[in-house]
Amino acid sequence: AIERGSKVKILRKESYWYGDVGTVASIDKSGIIYPVIVRFNKVNYNGFSGSAGGLNTNNFAEHELEVV
């Protein structure tokens, strides 16, 4: 089962992080479509409006993740 702290591989082909491994930061139990927040070591794009980097978290559905 996917739980907080799990290392997961991203299976969503259109994702910037496809094939990468991230760490589960949290799981939303409220029934939303993409409840699993995954944190990565790298950012997906340069930040804007003065922020240092881009996003390094993204929401995924459990079926888009594979525990490694």
Rank of each mutant, 00 (worst) to 15 (best):
S15V: 03
V67N: 05
L55T: 14
Y45M: 15
L65D: 02
I37C: 15
G5H: 04
Y34V: 04
S6M: 13
S49P: 13
R39L: 11
V43H: 12
I37R: 09
G19S: 04
V21Y: 07
S49I: 12
S6F: 09
N58S: 15
Y18W: 04
S51Y: 04
K7T: 08
I27D: 00
E64C: 06
N46F: 09
A25F: 07
G19N: 09
A25C: 15
W17E: 00
V24Y: 00
S26M: 12
E66Q: 10
R4E: 14
E62A: 11
Y18M: 02
G22H: 03
G22E: 02
A25V: 14
K29S: 12
Y34I: 02
K42Q: 08
V43A: 07
I2M: 08
S15G: 02
G22L: 06
G22A: 04
S15Q: 00
N46I: 05
A52P: 11
K13Q: 12
S6G: 04
N44Q: 14
V24K: 00
F60D: 02
K29M: 12
N44F: 14
R12C: 14
L55D: 10
W17Y: 05
K42D: 15
F48C: 15
N44V: 11
K42W: 06
K29Q: 09
R39C: 15
I10R: 02
N41V: 11
S51K: 05
P35M: 11
R4A: 13
I33G: 12
E66T: 06
G31S: 12
N44R: 07
V68Y: 06
E64L: 03
N41G: 10
K7W: 11
N56R: 09
F48G: 15
K9T: 04
V68L: 10
V21K: 00
V21P: 00
E64A: 01
I37Y: 09
F60P: 01
S30K: 08
E14P: 05
G50I: 05
T57V: 09
Y34W: 08
S26P: 00
R39W: 12
D28S: 09
F40S: 03
G50R: 02
S30T: 10
R12M: 06
F60Y: 09
T23G: 01
N59V: 07
W17Q: 01
N56L: 08
V43E: 15
H63P: 04
L65Y: 01
E62M: 12
H63G: 05
F48N: 14
V68F: 05
Y45A: 15
S30G: 10
F40L: 05
V8I: 02
V24H: 01
I10D: 03
K13P: 10
K7E: 06
G31A: 10
F60V: 01
N41E: 14
F60C: 04
V36T: 00
I10H: 03
F48M: 14
K9L: 07
K9R: 11
L11C: 11
K9I: 10
G50C: 15
P35S: 07
F40G: 04
S30I: 08
V43S: 08
V38W: 00
E62H: 09
I2Q: 00
A61G: 09
N58G: 15
G54P: 09
G47D: 15
Y18R: 00
I32K: 10
S26E: 13
S51W: 04
F48V: 14
R12W: 05
K42S: 08
G47F: 04
V36C: 06
N44E: 14
G54Y: 07
N41R: 08
A61Q: 05
I27Q: 01
R4Y: 10
H63Q: 06
I27L: 06
F60H: 01
G53I: 10
R4V: 14
K42I: 07
P35V: 15
I10F: 02
E62D: 07
F60K: 00
A25N: 05
S15P: 00
H63F: 13
L11R: 04
T57I: 06
G31H: 09
I37D: 04
V8C: 14
R12S: 05
R12V: 08
F40T: 03
F60M: 00
R39S: 11
G54V: 05
Y18E: 03
V8N: 01
R4F: 10
S6Y: 10
E14K: 04
L65P: 01
E3L: 08
S26G: 12
E14V: 05
V36G: 00
V68S: 03
L65Q: 01
D20C: 14
E66P: 01
N56T: 12
Y45E: 15
S49H: 09
P35K: 13
S51T: 12
Y18T: 02
P35R: 09
P35D: 11
V8W: 00
R12H: 04
S51F: 06
S49N: 11
D20I: 13
H63M: 06
T23H: 05
I27N: 02
A1I: 11
S49G: 13
T57C: 15
N41H: 09
V21G: 02
